[in-house]
């Protein structure tokens, strides 16, 4: 189950003429060293090794 963070920042109203463009991709990824400790790291490793996505891992 994902942890849900309630943010206090208000969403503006969409203008009536609103027409969304096609989604673009995020910037090129980097690569960093993970420090192998803690429960979330073990869960990260479990999902990776068992090819579970987050939803499947929740089950």
């Amino acid at each position: 189950m994902a942890a849900v963070v309630d943010l206090p920042f208000e969403l503006p109203a969409a203008p009536s003429s609103f027409k969304p463009s096609a989604p673009a991709s995020i910037s090129k990824l980097g690569q960093e060293t993970i420090l192998p400790a803690g429960p979330s790291y073990v869960a990260h490793t479990r999902r990776q090794l068992r090819q579970l996505d987050f939803a499947a891992d929740d089950a």
Binding site: V5, D6, F9, E10, L11, P12, F54
Partner: peptide
């Protein structure tokens, strides 16, 4: 994965 909630400023279409 991240999950958030944000309050709509009014009823009707909220812009993300």
């Amino acid at each position: 994965r991240r999950v958030y909630t944000l309050p709509a400023s009014q009823a009707g279409p909220a812009l993300f």
